[in-house]
Simulated assay, not measured.
Amino acid sequence: MRLGTEAAMKGYRVRYTLATKLVNELVEAADEKHLNKTIARYGRVDLLCIDELGYMELDRHGAELLFQVLTEREEKNGVAIASNESFGGWTKTFTDPRFRAAIVDRLTCNGTIIETGTDSYRLASTRARAEHAEAG
């Protein structure tokens, strides 16, 4: 996420993670009885960038753990989410409507939603580099 890179270059503490990796880490932390420490670590960074949210189905436990991280960060530090799915498409990821609504609420309260369209940023970057290489 370019936003995270720019923030880090300005001296902010930034953590980037894939949504599935974050949830897996939280599940493992819960199993090993150090969930509070893991959530606190994610709560301390200035900007948490979560990529690819909306692709994988999360069970209720995974959704609850993600909710805890977002709640820990609420009104304290920023969260940037990258997803090719609109909020309406998150029914596959968050099958429990209550958690889906709560997570969307946490993410959108006092937030800014930037829609870039359906075109892939990665594909556009690759094409631009290829065109630049051909021209150069």
Rank of each mutant, 00 (worst) to 15 (best):
R2V: 11
Y12W: 13
T17M: 08
L18W: 08
V23N: 01
N24G: 07
N24P: 05
E25I: 03
L26E: 01
V27R: 05
A30K: 15
A30H: 14
E32H: 15
N36V: 09
I39L: 11
I39H: 02
A40P: 04
R44V: 13
I50M: 03
D51S: 09
L53C: 02
L53Q: 01
L53M: 11
M56L: 15
L58A: 01
R60L: 14
H61K: 15
G62D: 04
L66S: 00
L66N: 01
F67M: 02
Q68Y: 09
V69D: 00
R73V: 02
R73I: 04
E74S: 12
K76Q: 15
K76F: 08
V79H: 05
A80H: 03
A80E: 06
S86P: 06
P97A: 05
F99Y: 15
R100C: 08
R100Y: 05
R100P: 02
A101T: 14
A101H: 06
A101F: 03
A102E: 01
V104K: 03
T108E: 04
C109F: 13
C109Y: 14
G111H: 06
T112S: 12
I113D: 08
E115K: 12
T118D: 14
S125P: 01
T126Y: 10
R127S: 09
A128G: 09
R129L: 11
A133E: 14
